[in-house]
Design a protein around this nucleic acid. Structure first.
Ligand SMILES: [Mn+2]
Ligand SMILES: [Mn+2]
Ligand SMILES: [Zn+2]
Ligand SMILES: [Zn+2]
Lengths: 149, 149
DNA sequence: TAGTAATTAAGAATAAATCTTAACTAAAAA
DNA sequence: TTTTTAGTTAAGATTTATTCTTAATTACTA
């Protein structure tokens, strides 16, 4: 398990090796994403960082996330919500998506990760990775629903 | 395996039981989605149907798809593309997504479907369904790349 | 067939994301 | 350190996907 210092060092190395400058904005955006478990949208990241970087523009957040995505530092999580949501790439994991509140929760599934793919995928193309998305209603939504009665 | 007539009968019954009128537009949109394997966007569905229904508005396509989604007749496929993509709900299956051209290809995986979920999901909430998304480059994109050299 | 409530088309409005441009800044060069 | 310069930024305009508003039309009911 990598320490935050190691992850930040890898981040810096990746930026430098691609000729990207280590701007304050890039560092803060990446750090915020690293420390968040919420898979934030560009907008919510911007809102969060606004206090520390009062001049930060939404455009910079969008652009920076797209750059990080290309470098493989950040992943865009696929949801059917209109806003894209992001996470720092750390390890192989999967997502539980709450259809009620939109909360995204990570989970691990080693058995799945090490399992082979089905025959039905033969000849379909070159496979990069496989992920599970579980849909449902999260514990918090279930609890708050109960309390309404 | 249901015939198209049976599927259309179920569609009509579902609409009626929810007090929805069987408009020409609804029938055509549903039929087009049933017959397509491409997981079309609202826009491409509209383009396709425009010849048969020259006055069909994009809004009607969007609205109708949203209605069908609520009835469980149609599913929104989660991709990270900006446009939402849809499919008629027929059977349990999974998706291969080509990161190059955006093509979505269905595949079946019975072993996965019948497999239990990992412990790591315990207490996370109420689970509705689980799906696999495989990313990669489709056969056609691989072939056309080869031919470029 | 007439009545009526639901549905539609058209175009305006909104929301998310991207583009343009001029000013700025970090890192390399001197 | 200072200069240079390529890369980055903010601000606001623009684009793209989707949703809303409203008046007209349509499908079902009796
Ligand atoms: Mn995650
Ligand atoms: Mn499908
Ligand atoms: Zn929830
Ligand atoms: Zn492809």
């Amino acid at each position: 398990m990598a320490t935050e210092q190691q992850v930040m060092a890898h981040f810096e190395a990746t930026c430098r090796s691609h000729g990207l400058k280590l701007t304050h904005q890039r560092l803060e955006i990446y750090r915020a994403l690293l420390q968040s478990a919420e898979h934030p949208s560009a907008e919510s990241l911007h809102k969060q960082l606004e206090t520390r970087l009062p001049t930060l523009s939404p455009d910079t957040v969008y652009r920076t996330l797209a750059t990080f995505e290309q470098l493989g530092l950040v992943k865009r999580v696929e949801t059917m919500s209109s806003q894209a949501r992001f996470e720092a790439v750390i390890d192989q994991h999967h997502h539980f998506f709450c259809d009620q509140c939109g909360r995204l929760i990570d989970f691990h599934w080693h058995l799945f990760d090490t399992m082979g793919l089905p025959e039905s995928l033969q000849g379909i193309g070159k496979i990069r990775d496989k992920n599970v998305v579980v849909h449902g209603v999260c514990e918090q939504c279930l609890t708050s629903k109960k309390n309404e009665s």
